[in-house]
């Protein structure tokens, strides 16, 4: 055993440390390939189920409906990402892994930044898988590459806003079991939006609620960017989906990022 007393450097390197912590998530995928595959292919299953079971009833044919639902599922996947974030955050907190990170001479911000990087990357992989499945099912972006890229940017922007909700909630709930409740909630939120059906087919009051759902803004904006066709909505919110898709996540991040940081610092109370 060495006899040197540690004189570890006191300078912290937030990006280096965050990348190492994010790399830990990639190793989790490698250690649990089946779990990761199920997570990534689940949205594809949703597309196939919704298309096959309900597509005929909703849009006249499964093929027609699939074209409609793919952008919606892309947005919905960003919402269900909250669950991935919460599970990771609560698992670390309850297994006291978070405390060990907090006892190391690393930047406190690195723990949160590492989470952000890992989860954004996971979501990007999910978007790629859904896109490939969509292409295989005949879906195309008809409006050129740049608007399509902008659409993916908007999707990840929504994920970024929601990520802070997940970090905050994950630090607050205190047990991985509580995440199940959030998982359940994401379905009514998904159905009460423009993700799966046109609000024009809903009772007007319900349609109005659906059009004000932040998820709808992104789903509609992304549909517009992919097709180049502006969809007439029932409400002002629906007519300005792009604006809402930009502002909504910004508001989420502005509110929940400080709350998440506060909750993280509050661990030392």
């Amino acid at each position: 055993m060495t006899t040197t007393i540690s004189t570890a450097p006191v300078r912290t390197h937030v990006w280096r440390e965050a990348l190492i912590l994010a790399g830990r998530t990639l190793r989790h995928w490698r250690a649990r390939p089946v779990g990761f595959a199920i997570q990534v292919f689940f949205p594809v299953l949703v597309i196939l189920l919704m298309g096959g079971l309900l597509g005929g009833a909703i849009a006249g044919s499964a093929a027609q409906y699939i074209l409609f639902v793919i952008p919606g599922v892309l947005a919905f996947t960003m919402l269900s990402g909250i669950e991935t974030t919460m599970i990771a955050v609560t698992t670390d907190a309850t297994r006291t892994v978070t405390d060990r990170f907090r006892s190391l001479p690393i930047s406190p911000g690195a723990v949160l930044l590492g989470r952000v990087l890992a989860d954004m990357l996971t979501s990007a992989v999910e978007l790629v898988v859904i896109t490939l499945a969509g292409l295989a099912l005949g879906w195309r972006w008809e409006n050129g590459v740049l608007p399509a890229l902008a659409a993916y940017g908007l999707l990840l922007w929504l994920r970024f806003g929601l990520l802070w909700v997940g970090v905050w909630a994950g630090l607050r709930v205190g047990s991985p079991e509580a995440v199940g409740a959030v998982q359940l909630l994401s379905w009514p939120i998904g159905f009460l939006s423009t993700v799966f059906v046109q609000p024009s087919t809903m009772p007007p009051w319900l349609g109005a609620i659906a059009e004000h759902n932040p998820l709808s803004a992104t789903a509609s904006a992304v549909r517009e960017l992919f097709t180049g066709v502006h969809l007439q909505g029932l409400t002002w919110a629906a007519d300005h989906a792009l604006l809402f898709a930009l502002v909504g996540p910004l508001v989420l991040a502005a509110v929940f990022c400080p709350l998440a940081i506060r909750a993280f610092q509050g661990l030392s109370r």
Binding site: S6, T7, A8, P9, V10, R24, R27, H28, A31, R32, R95, T96, V97, D99, R100, S103, L104, P105, I106
Partner: peptide, 19 residues
Amino acid sequence: RVRASIGLVGQYAALDEVL
């Protein structure tokens, strides 16, 4: 600076269970 000088073994093992 304190954290750079210490080691901590907590009451409950703080390890990544998947790795």
